[in-house]
């Protein structure tokens, strides 16, 4: 639903980078380069971004 606060595997705080990651992807940047730039280097943390889908907009009409 929302990006998890921490990486499931290592526990690094990753939630704070989500909005910037999303905005820069919309600008057409390469995801790998954005993640390197954000300091998300381990593949456990990187999959948190690559595999995430925000669902708040999908479920909010059914409240």
């Amino acid at each position: 639903m929302m990006i998890p606060v921490r990486c499931f595997t290592c526990g690094k705080v990753i939630g704070e980078h989500w909005e910037e990651y999303q905005a820069r992807l919309d600008d057409g940047e390469d995801p790998a380069e954005v993640l390197d730039d954000l300091g998300v280097t381990r593949h456990c943390c990187r999959r948190m971004f690559v595999s995430h889908k925000d669902l708040v907009d999908v479920v909010s009409p059914y409240q």
């Binding site: 929302m2 990006i3 606060v5 705080v13 939630g15 704070e16 708040v56 909010s60 409240q63």
Partner: peptide, 15 residues
């Protein structure tokens, strides 16, 4: 909080 911009929850109108 050690970091200020971790999203907790996105709120819509009236929430």
């Amino acid at each position: 909080p050690a970091d200020d911009n971790i999203p907790i929850i996105e709120l819509k109108e009236q929430q």
